[in-house]
Design a protein around this nucleic acid. Sequence first.
DNA 1: TTACTGTGCTGCTGGAATCG
DNA 2: CGATTCCAGCAGCACAGTAA
Length: 181
Amino acid sequence: MSLGIGEKLKRLRLANNLTQEELANRTGLTKGYISQLERDLTSPSLATLKDILDVFGESLADFFQEQTREPVVYRRSDRIQTSDSREDLRVELLVQASQRRDMEPVLLTLQPGAETWEDRPHQGQEFGFVLKGAATIQVGSRAYRVSRGDCFYFTADRRHKLRNTSDRETQILWVVTPPTF
DNA sequence: TTACTGTGCTGCTGGAATCG
DNA sequence: CGATTCCAGCAGCACAGTAA
């Protein structure tokens, strides 16, 4: 969630212990106009915005970079279930889509006997950590059994898939790079 | 193509009203 | 009573329409 220009300007002003009137005096604007800006009832020209930011010692670049900075924390409620999900297999994106991502962390929840789709060879690597349960991961012609606390890491240049071979629900934190979801 | 005119939009002002 | 909001209005600019 990014703040609007008005809210951001208000925070800057309050952080600098200025009233709207004081800021107006320093920028050569009027206090009424400052009020409108802070409530997003109007938007400043580039020159005016620069004048205001000069008072706070902040550049236009810093101001807008802050506006578009991506979140650091992703909550449980932010998770998105992908269309790959089925009744016996849940695939949840832990981090919302972004153009700048280099990896894709996913939470896989497999019911007993459930199997993922078979992934074709592709560039990049895959990493998984078994949070609970146990499973068999097949990479190329070989199969490896992993259980809670184990992890796996392989180059994705061979066909690979995962199957819950235990009689309990199995949950795996899976990180794919580059993102494919 | 150029010049003129009307219109609408936007950034901003200034002072009165309201709020806490 | 200081801080903030409201609001009518002004200036400048872009743009479309029209006449020459």
